[in-house]
Amino acid sequence: MSWREVAAVAGGWAAGLGFPVVLYAAARIVSDETAGGGAGLFVYLGVVGFLFTAVCLLLSRRAPGAAAVVMLVAVLWCAQVWLWSDVNDDQAMHDRGVTATATVSRWIRTSDPFAGVDDKVTAVDVTLPGGTTTRLELGGERAPRVGGEVEVTRDPRGIQPSRLGPRPGEPTGLRTAARVVLVLLVGAALVGSLLSAEPVSEGF
């Protein structure tokens, strides 16, 4: 085996092992509650753009198998970002959330014919003890009546949006799901890296 072939094989394995690590780190950066819109969005667009470009290049090189695996990697990575975002949000509210009883002051109705929403209550304004008013997204929950009292959990730091209901428990289920998706992501990224390196190694 020539040094070029050895270098190609070593490069393929290095990419295969390093690619999942980079994707995992990027997912944690995007989902980090302190990353902010700028840094998280920049990393997210960078990863999505890279994966999209990789799929296009693999298709142009007539490597549909590798392209399909990379597309699977993209789907798993987006799922990883979504899951870790939910884990971080629930963990933050579990650790430092403060509950209070608030009064519903009004309903917020939304009409969006393109989304099939017709004059639906999607949020409520509530008045907290001390007179502060905040808006809470319902997220599909049933709207409490105006004038009624509801339990609200808020973040003293103001990073997480306030939410209806008591302080959440440990996000054990979400964390387990995120770890399962991570295992699948690592496996798919490793296979995708090695398959993507095959046409290059054959060219030496």
Rank of each mutant, 00 (worst) to 15 (best):
R135Q: 14
D155Y: 08
E137P: 04
R61W: 14
G158V: 07
L184C: 11
V87S: 01
E33P: 01
D125C: 00
T99C: 07
L195C: 01
G40I: 03
R28I: 00
L184F: 12
A197R: 05
L185P: 00
G16K: 10
L41D: 11
V9H: 00
G49Y: 04
S196F: 14
P171G: 03
F50A: 15
D89Q: 13
V55A: 13
V152L: 09
D89K: 11
A39R: 14
G203L: 13
S162A: 15
D118E: 12
S2L: 03
V69R: 02
A10S: 11
I108M: 13
G37T: 01
V81P: 06
G36R: 06
W82D: 14
H94C: 05
G140W: 01
P144D: 06
L41R: 08
R154A: 15
A68G: 15
T153L: 09
R61Y: 08
L58N: 04
G147C: 09
A54K: 07
G169A: 04
G18I: 08
A26W: 11
T153E: 12
T127G: 00
V22R: 03
K120S: 13
E33L: 12
A8Y: 01
R157L: 07
L57H: 07
V180H: 05
D32I: 09
A189V: 00
V81D: 03
T110S: 14
A178C: 11
T110C: 14
